[in-house]
Design a protein around this nucleic acid. Structure first.
Length: 376
RNA sequence: GGAAGUAUUGAGCAAUUGGUUGGCUCGCCAGACUGUAAAUCUGGUCUCUUCGGAGCUUGUAGGUUCGAGUCCUACUACUUCCA
């Protein structure tokens, strides 16, 4: 993998770069649509490619391990082939499931025992076998196995957990050293900074992670319920500490405003379920705020769902029609909303990139944050 | 024309043996959602309210009873069956 910085915003810490892997280039800042179980929910690969056009999407180790299971993915020749996606894929390690499935898991130094949410069976994840699974899934970028701490998290626990995540990182690295790539392309490994909402821990963690000299670095444990200001304070500290010439990935973030503010702090990569999940629940993101398309007020509004026309659905379908589809619970409504939202998110980061390269990102960002901060 | 049955909130059902009807599902109206246990979840949904409460209600009108959605009478509407 290669990362080249192409420009920097004069009034903020925002950067524009190009990341190159064996599956092509990724222009940063980038938003990566989430495709947990081998699908970006509700979107055909063709629409994803042609209408939304991201350079990279996500998959999830835990979910893919449970179904279809690694054996099937290996037989398929990796996730790219299995899902017919020839661009980049990044897999999360299952570290987030340590947080989100907290009722169904037990953490030990050795690893995490999960109780499957599907059939109740027990599974043990360790840094080593998670690397092994990610080798088999075959994503271009694979993530360290970490513990994503909840919010709030007391200092002692946050510190202890951070150190364990660091020890797990070294185990991940050691294991990767002795396991070759499974397919005919290379894989890049990103370690993850933790430290909850404590500046000193974040700094310490970022220093530790930086010392491992990975090709890219991630910030985890945020967007778990903390106020936005705390999130920004943490990304700021971490970005200041992480190497400037490596891409920085803020995991699980976020709202369009979160994304712009974090770009301004030096983050290059984002992913979030929000545009896809919220789409299925009737929320449309626009440059002027969010719309709950299920609301009665749209019942006779025949204007296009988004005048901007970023993707074809924006102009081809009216608000009244999409509201109708949600009212009668038709799949098409959710599909339209998903394409719209992903189109908007990708537009947002591309626009950010343009403004960084043009040198006027900061003013543009402030204008956008102001106008998006409302409900229509 | 005759016989039997039914009537509870927008809909469909509950509600002990006559013992505080406002419970459930759906619909509707809102809200939530951040490395996806999520096409999910939460709240509201008789009327009024100063948000503390207050009031009205089981097709309609009566009756029995300390007490009626429940029992009785008449009426109305609907369903089924027989002519």
């Amino acid at each position: 993998m290669k990362f080249d910085l192409k420009g920097k915003d004069p009034q903020s810490k925002a950067r524009a770069g190009v990341l190159t892997t064996d599956h092509g280039t990724i222009e940063t800042p980038i938003f990566m649509p989430v495709g947990t179980i081998g699908t970006v929910k509700g979107v055909h690969q063709r629409e994803l490619k042609e209408d939304i056009n991201p350079d990279i999407i996500l998959g999830n180790t835990y979910h893919l391990y449970l179904r279809p299971q690694t054996e099937i993915l290996e037989k398929a020749g990796g996730l790219h082939k299995f899902i017919n996606w020839d661009r980049n894929i990044l897999t999360d390690s299952g570290g987030y499931q340590v947080y989100s499935l907290s009722a169904n898991r037990k953490i030990k130094e050795e690893g995490v025992k999960f109780k499957s949410h599907i059939d109740g069976s027990y599974h043990f994840f360790t840094p080593e076998n998670v690397m092994e699974i990610q080798r088999t899934i075959g994503a271009d970028i694979i993530m360290a196995f970490d513990e994503c701490t909840p919010y709030p998290c007391d200092y002692r626990y946050a510190k202890r957990s951070m150190h364990m995540t660091h020890r797990w990182l070294d185990r991940c690295l050691a294991h990767l050293q002795k396991t070759p790539y499974k397919y005919d392309y290379s894989q890049t490994f990103f370690p993850i900074v933790q430290g909850s909402t404590y500046k000193d821990l974040r700094k310490q963690s970022a220093e530790f992670i930086a010392s491992r000299e990975a090709e890219g670095n991630a910030i985890g444990g945020l967007s778990v319920g903390e106020p936005a200001e705390e999130m920004y304070a943490m990304t700021d500290v971490v970005c200041e500490t992480l190497p400037k010439d490596k891409p920085r990935y803020l995991m699980g973030v976020g709202t369009p405003i979160n994304i712009l503010e974090n770009i301004a702090l030096g983050v290059d990569m984002f992913d979030c379920v929000m545009p896809t999940r919220n789409a299925r629940n009737g929320m449309l993101f626009t440059a002027h705020g969010t719309i709950n398309i299920k609301n009665k007020k749209w019942a006779d509004d025949f204007s296009p769902i988004d005048e901007m026309g970023i993707t074809y659905v924006d102009l081809e379908y009216s608000k009244a029609y999409v509201r109708h589809l949600f009212t009668v619970n038709e799949l098409l409504g959710k599909q339209i909303a998903t394409i719209h939202n992903l189109g908007f998110y990708l537009w947002l980061v591309r626009e950010a990139r343009k403004h960084i390269l043009a040198g006027d990102f900061y003013e543009w960002k402030n204008k956008m944050v102001k106008q998006m901060d409302k409900r229509l």
